[in-house]
Write a protein that binds this DNA or RNA. Sequence first.
DNA 1: TTGTATGCGTTATCAT
DNA 2: ATGATAACGCATACAA
Lengths: 333, 333
Amino acid sequence: MKKRAILADIARAANVSLMTASRAINQKPGVSEDVRQRILALAAEMGYRPNAIARSLATRQTTTIGLVVPDITNPFFAQVARGVEDAAFENQYSVFLLNTNEDRQRESAALDSLWQKDIDGIILCSSRLTEAELTAQIQRFPALVLINREVKNPPANLVTINVDDQQIARLAVEHFLADGRRQIGCIGGPAASFSSRRRLAGYRRALKEAGLPVDSSLVENALPNTEGGRQAAAALLARQPALDAIFAFNDLIAVGAMQACQETGRRVPEDIAIIGVDDIPLAEIIRPRLTTLHLNLAHMGRLGVHTLLQIIAGEPSQPAHRIEPHLMVRESA
Amino acid sequence: MKKRAILADIARAANVSLMTASRAINQKPGVSEDVRQRILALAAEMGYRPNAIARSLATRQTTTIGLVVPDITNPFFAQVARGVEDAAFENQYSVFLLNTNEDRQRESAALDSLWQKDIDGIILCSSRLTEAELTAQIQRFPALVLINREVKNPPANLVTINVDDQQIARLAVEHFLADGRRQIGCIGGPAASFSSRRRLAGYRRALKEAGLPVDSSLVENALPNTEGGRQAAAALLARQPALDAIFAFNDLIAVGAMQACQETGRRVPEDIAIIGVDDIPLAEIIRPRLTTLHLNLAHMGRLGVHTLLQIIAGEPSQPAHRIEPHLMVRESA
DNA sequence: TTGTATGCGTTATCAT
DNA sequence: ATGATAACGCATACAA
């Protein structure tokens, strides 16, 4: 490994003090233009790059943020992560990636390690922490963005970004209703999921507003994958054979439900319509193509970073953002 | 934000010097057991965690690695990333995530930023750098693991991890042959992909060894997604209507090809068999289920981290690893 | 076993 | 405009 040039090397080569070299390189005032140019040229020639660690220690800023997700292999978080990383890169920030595996302990450990690294801010997705744990963590970091989670009294250094779950459920149900469907079932995600609970509430409310009965035997919970969707749909159809529509918590569940319908001799969408959420690539690949509520997840990630930078800069920012869904009508409903 | 305790606070509270506090906390010898316990208790009480930045500056070690991938939303890299992050976490390492978007410039910028951060090692996936650029980068980092890329004379701080592309192609072709297929086509990935080139070579060799003619009109290239697969397969089938098998560069291409076959009235696998590579979740979801060559990508990521740690620790490690594929026979072949 | 001096590479502060 | 000195928080080397 080649030895790398440090600021002292540049200063010595340019016959100036450390500080003038530092000022020149950081584009700060207080250096005559010719001296600055000479130093910059020398730095470029010697391949000098400031040591970020030393700089961080001196400035108490790391230009680094942490991204905590349950599982990066989940397409939902992979999309968010892409947006985060892109926006961070554009702003010269680096991002630490941490998986929690939906485990509270590991999530706490992840946050601990980020705290040790003295990062400037953190984007925390689908936190499983209790409200108390969360509050404690919030005061440890300069800035915090919560995705897929809300909190009662958000302090100034905390912003939440959530999908508009009520609207998601409303759009799905209204689409079914406009199509003449009246026996509308719902498959939620894990019972612990905040998003899932909100969507169930939205589903019930939309039914009620349409004057339809809200029957708990129309609802099932499922693991958020195709197999979960298949099993939940099978149970649902056994209980409610006349079902003519299913609103699913996400696309994977929707696809599983679709297959369960087909396996029981039902045609999609003729006999039963299905709508998912997320618009993952699979939605376009599967046949019939899945009608779903599209979410701009990469944008959610970008927004998270921009918000974080605002908080860090001390600029005012709205305490909560809501991502609006868009109905992608394809073939399943 | 609450002020955080530093080592000096602990030392003062315990009435000892900085060094005894440091030794106690780092589990180093030279501290009597009772003093150590007293310090540790105090540290726990005050919620002390060492400042990683300061420690890094002093020790010249960051216990941080960089993971550079073309695109984290690609399931292939998401799986690898998961393995990397898991193994890193187990070893108390943090990981920086960087996307290159398959852009040489951005890849260079990513490596630059990692260099500034003084990280201990890098896992670089599917690098698009030229051999010269790569050689230059290698001597800037203490340790480097290359995934999906080989290099001529690997230095001691560099280990490559590749999928066994020849074996992948061989297993696919042999499976087709055992099934009585004789008109075996191949859809490669992007022409620039090293993996794709090696698999094409393996495909040709396997045909030759079976005494079959190697006809370039049996080969197409495609973008690595379903639409690419669909178009390539359509072109292939137009040229070679009697085709009875297709080996695809990856599962997405395979699924696109499958749909192109079905759209032209062919039954899968009766009329034409299809085999993909990767075994992404979609392979089990799609109907007919996709026969494919399974790759343990998370293991690849874990291996990458372990190898990196070996290099960092100065332990000897084999210069190249090869990941073996496993044929998952499902329904498409 | 415990403590003191020094350095890691950079920036902030205060002089000149 | 430029420079000397201290400080960031910790660990290494050496002393007691």
